[in-house]
Nucleic acid binder design. Structure first.
Length: 477
RNA sequence: GGCCCCAUCGUCUAGUGGCCUAGGACACCACCCUCUCAAGGUGGCGGCACGGGUUCGAAUCCCGUUGGGGCUGCCA
């Protein structure tokens, strides 16, 4: 459509999410495929919000989709990005196209109700519409649907960029509805008309749409246009090998952002589902993906969305961050309302000092608060089991008392001195440092595991450290 | 039921007839390092679904079986 001012040069790709309130991770992967191709080929990535129900198809419903795409690097500011478009803006053309199909003899009206169609199918023992009105020559009228007249012989071959040639016997494709009895266009028709109007050249989407491809291709042909390049990529599945669904699985891309996954890690991981970068490592930059991604190389079988592997990728990406960037990335998780400490006790400088120690120890940014909470909590809650094991251990009380005495007199309150002092205490009790530090750790942090001990002790200061050690000592009775 | 798709370690994959006694990554296990936990290093466990072909030679090609999945609306 020239009136839209769309670019006519270069291949045109589109994604067509439905405004469901979240953006599906499977859709994100498909979007990434389209984006990589559009960018490499100097084409256009078209975002079209797919819903013929105008009530649901409002700009405000789509902001979430746009934000989610932006997060994974598909920015509406990029010149290759076009849209978002709303299918409903072509409603008139959908009906026009249907009428043209009727006039050219490619479609016919049928007055059977949905119930009647079902009854006939049941009686015949074959599911689907049986072509009852095919040759009845009905004209348009109330209560009549317009159906596409599919060929009754021959085969329709869909040339698929990832699967090769897929052929369908035409007599297995029923005469599907184009216009409802109230005259409104069906999605299938609307979808094809929009693709034609927008000069879409490549339709890259999930495999679940493959059975629709022959029907859509028939429509392209009947409307006098040459069909696009089809590419049906495998679906993403859960551990039961079923397509990811909103009910059963965690599929919202936004949810992963909230849980502290880095966009770059998410993008990289998503791309490895069904496709592998050329080099010896699968951790690759987007530029590499853009350069190397080919539809022909996409796997044919479904891929399991493995959160464990996503976490491993995320950990790698977190560790690769510059310290300042890591600290920045942590901010939303440190300043969030869900944080365990009172907001006013948070100290950015203390966190900055701890940051290098936590950076190698977290898989997601959401893990960060629990690593440093004891620094900002007035009284860290104590893990009962850890307490019993570390403080209740034989000799632990003496170690505690000895450490308190030593720390009281310590000339310089710094991590190195604190360590040396505790080493001396340990030696006096015939313990290894690893053993002796356990009770100190639990007394001060409330946990048996955590970041290295002496740096936080330094940050906490002598007064507070001793206060906690004393409290632990007296609690042993 | 009908139509369609798929099949390499537990998982994601490399592999396009000889470089394969099948390579990598995640997970798992062991060891090293080490103030706990991580990170890092080293090593280990583990796979071509099955049966027939074709070929001098098959993970790779063909057929079948089995097993998985998707679609099957006057929803989108």
């Amino acid at each position: 459509m020239a009136s839209l001012g769309v670019s006519m040069s270069g291949p045109r790709f589109r994604i067509a999410p439905s405004p469901t309130g979240f953006f599906h991770v499977g859709g994100a992967r498909t979007a990434l495929y389209n984006w990589a191709l559009a960018k490499r080929l100097g084409g256009t990535f078209v975002l079209r919000i797919e819903d013929t129900d105008e009530a649901r198809n409002q700009p405000q419903w789509t902001q979430g989709i746009i934000d989610a795409l932006a997060w994974i690097g598909i920015s509406s500011d990029d010149p290759a990005f076009e849209g978002p478009y709303f299918q409903s803006s072509y409603a008139g053309q959908h009906v026009d196209a249907a009428l043209r199909l009727f006039e050219s003899g490619n479609a016919y009206y049928c007055d059977l109700t949905a119930q009647e169609v079902q009854d006939r199918a049941k009686a015949a023992g074959k599911p689907g519409y049986d072509g009852y009105s095919r040759d009845r020559g009905l004209s348009a009228g109330p209560g009549r649907v317009l159906r596409f007249k599919t060929p009754r012989s021959g085969t329709t071959v869909v040339h698929d960029a990832v699967r090769g040639e897929v052929s369908f016997a035409n007599d297995t494709i029923e005469d599907f509805v184009l216009l409802r009895s109230n005259g409104s266009p069906m999605f299938m028709l609307a979808n094809v008309v929009d693709d034609i109007e927008m000069r879409i050249s490549h339709v890259v989407r999930a495999e679940e749409h493959l059975p629709n491809a022959p029907k859509q291709q028939m429509l392209w042909d009947a409307l006098g246009t040459v069909p696009p390049v089809w590419a049906h990529v495998p679906v993403v599945v859960n551990e039961q090998r079923k397509k990811l669904s909103k009910r059963r699985d965690k599929v919202a891309l936004e949810g992963y952002r909230e849980e502290g996954f880095l966009a770059a890690a998410m993008v990289n991981y998503l791309m490895t589902l069904g496709w592998a970068p050329r080099g010896e490592t699968e951790i690759v930059e987007w530029s590499t993906i853009e350069r190397d991604f080919r539809l022909e190389d996409v796997n044919h079988s479904p891929a399991f969305f493995d959160i464990k592997k996503l976490m491993a990728f995320n950990g790698e990406y977190i560790r690769a961050l510059e310290l300042a960037d890591f600290i920045d990335a942590c901010q939303p998780f440190l300043l969030s309302r869900n944080v365990p400490w009172p907001a006013e006790r948070f100290d950015a400088a203390v966190f900055a000092a701890m940051a290098p120690l936590v950076q190698t120890r977290v898989a997601t940014l959401a893990d960060v608060p629990a690593m440093v909470d004891f620094l900002f909590l007035a009284d860290p809650s104590v893990d009962g089991a850890a307490w019993t094991k570390a403080i209740g251990a034989a000799g632990a009380k003496q170690v505690l008392a000895d450490t308190i005495a030593s720390y009281r007199e310590l000339a310089s309150w710094d991590a190195e001195s604190l360590k040396t002092a505790l080493e001396e205490v340990s030696a006096r009790h015939g313990l290894k440092l690893g053993k002796a530090q356990a009770s100190i750790r639990v007394a001060v942090t409330g946990r048996a595991v955590g970041p290295p001990l002496f740096e936080p002790l330094e940050l906490l200061g002598r007064t507070e450290t001793l206060r906690r050690l004393l409290a632990a000592e007296s609690a042993t009775g």
